[in-house]
Design a binder for these strands. Structure first.
Lengths: 256, 256
DNA sequence: GACCGTACCGTACATCGTACGGCTCGGTTA
DNA sequence: TAACCGAGCCGTACGATGTACGGTACGGTC
C-alpha cells in the first residue's frame, strides 16, 4: 500500500456507486459491473487474496490503471462485490416468509440460505468490512429477512437483534468451515489426516492429569468429527439452541 | 509472498515451537519469546497489518532475517502470538467453575473474559487461522472453560458444542466491535457522525414503500444505537438467548 | 478539420515475506 | 596456541501488492 488505509473518506461516493445506474461501456467495453463480476469470479476460483487490481485487469484484458476510471479504489470494489453477491439471495423478497414452520422455519431457511451463500463465496468472510455495505441488494436482504419476524410480538429493536444473532452465528460457523477448507487445500492434507497425524503428538505433550476434562472431551470430539471441529454440526446445534432461546423470548412477550 | 501460502507443511515443528522449552538467547539477546512479545506489542498498538518481519526486527534492533533463526516463518509467529495471548486468560484454571450462578454464571464469566481478551488484542480476530493452535495456553483455556460444563448432564460432544457456540458468538460480536472501532479510527469519523451523515442519503435512496419493514426497523435500531449496530448489545442479547436455549437442552437431559 | 474531455495505461514508489549466500562470533578440539 | 566448525546474524534480491502521477489516444461536437 502506498500510504494509509484511507478507507473512503466520502461515503456519498460509495453510495452513488452502489445505487448508481449502469453506465455505458467505453471504448474497451469496461464497466463497473464487468469489473465487479471479474473480481468475483477471481475470488470464487482462487480466494480473496487472488483479487488484485492487476489480476482483475488481466482477466479483462485491460491495463491495470484503467480500472481506476470506473472504481475509486479497492475498498469500494470489495463493497461492490459484497452487495452483488447478496443479490443472489432473494429474488423473491417474500421467500423466507413463505416457508413452513412460522418464524422458526423462516429463520432456519434464512440461516441455510446465508450458509449456502458463504459456501459459494467464502471470500465474503475474509473481507474486513468496517461499516455495513448499505447497497441495494443488502437492503433487499435485510427487508426479506426481517419480514417473517414482523408481527409476532417482538419490538423493532428485538427483531433486529434476533436477526443479527442468527446471522452472526451463521457467519461464525461458516468462517470456521471456510478456514478449514482453505487450509485443507493449502496443505494438501485432509482434516482427518491432520487429526491422526497430530493426535499422538498431542497425547505425548498434553498429559491427562493436568488436563483431565480437556483430554477426555477433546478425544471424544475428535473421534466424532475426525477433525478438531465440525462446522456443519456447530451450525445446526447452535441454531437449535438459539431458536429455542428466541422461542422463550417470544413466549415471554405473548404472556406478559 | 514468494510463492504459495505454504502454511506449515510440518505440524510437528509448530508443536515443538509452541511447547518447547525456552531457549538461551544468542549474542544479540534474541529469543523466540522476545520476538513474540515484540510482535504482540506492535499488533496491540498499530494493528495486525503493522506486524511485519521488518517492523518486528526494527523494534528489537536486529536485522530482519535474524528472526528466521528463531522462528520458521510468519504463520508460526502468529500462532505463537495467539497462544501467548491466550495465556492471559486463566492463571487459575478453576476460575470459571468458581463463579456464582452455576454453569450459567460460569459461561457468562467465560464470555466476558473472552470478550475482554478481544478488546485488548483485536488483532486476534483478523488472523485467518486454518486449524486450531493447540498450544499449551490454548489447551489450558480449553480445560478451564470445559470444567464448569462437566457433570451437569451433557455428553462430551455436547459440552464441546456448547462451549464452541458461546465462543463463536463472542468472537462474532467482538469482530463487529473491532471492525467498527478500526474504521472509526481510520476515517476519523464517529459511528454517530457516520450515522447522521448517511441517514438522509439513505432515506433518499431507500423508499419506504419498497422496503417497509427494513426502513422502519433500521430507523429504530439506528436511533437506539446511534450507529448501524451495537456490539455490546448484540453480545448480551445473544448470550441471553443462547443460555436460555442451553438451559432447555440441560432440562431435557435431566428429565428424559 | 480543429478541439477537447474522457477513457485508457506505462512507469515508479514504498511495502510485503522470504530464499540465498556470506560474515562473524563462541566454544571445542588438536 | 592454533585451527576449525557450527550457529547466530544479516545484506541483497525477487516477485508481489495498491495506487499517484503524467502521458496517450480516441469519440463526439463544433
Amino acid at each position: 500500500m502506498g500510504g494509509k488505509k484511507a478507507a473512503d473518506a466520502d461515503p456519498a461516493r460509495s453510495l452513488a456507486l452502489l445505487w448508481g445506474s449502469h453506465s455505458k461501456p467505453g471504448r474497451s467495453g469496461l464497466t463497473v459491473r464487468s469489473i465487479v463480476l471479474a473480481a468475483i469470479e477471481l475470488a470464487d476460483a482462487n480466494g480473496l487474496e487472488a483479487v488484485s487490481m492487476r489480476q482483475v485487469a488481466d482477466r479483462l484484458e485491460v491495463g491495470t490503471m484503467s480500472l481506476y476510471t470506473h472504481v475509486p479504489g479497492k475498498t469500494e470494489l470489495t463493497d461492490l462485490m459484497i452487495d452483488t453477491a447478496f443479490g443472489e439471495l432473494y429474488a423473491d423478497v417474500d421467500a423466507p416468509s413463505g416457508q413452513p414452520g412460522g418464524w422458526r422455519g423462516a429463520l432456519e431457511f434464512i440461516a441455510a440460505r446465508n450458509w449456502d451463500l458463504y459456501r459459494r463465496h467464502p471470500w465474503m468472510l475474509h473481507i474486513v468490512g468496517g461499516r455495513p455495505v448499505l447497497g441495494p441488494n443488502a437492503t433487499l436482504k435485510y427487508e426479506a429477512e426481517l419480514r417473517p419476524l414482523d408481527g409476532i410480538g417482538l419490538s423493532d429493536v428485538e427483531m433486529d437483534s434476533v436477526l443479527a444473532l442468527i446471522l452472526t452465528h451463521v457467519e461464525g460457523t461458516a468462517r470456521l468451515q471456510a478456514n478449514m477448507a482453505q487450509t485443507q487445500q493449502d496443505t494438501g492434507m485432509t482434516d482427518a489426516e491432520w487429526w491422526v497425524s497430530n493426535a499422538p503428538l498431542l497425547d505425548k505433550v498434553v498429559d491427562a492429569s493436568r488436563f483431565p476434562v480437556a483430554s477426555r472431551v477433546g478425544q471424544s470430539a475428535g473421534e466424532e468429527y475426525q477433525a478438531a471441529s465440525s462446522p456443519t454440526h456447530a451450525l445446526t446445534f447452535g441454531l437449535a439452541r438459539i431458536l429455542d432461546g428466541v422461542a422463550d423470548l417470544i413466549a415471554g412477550r405473548e404472556r406478559p
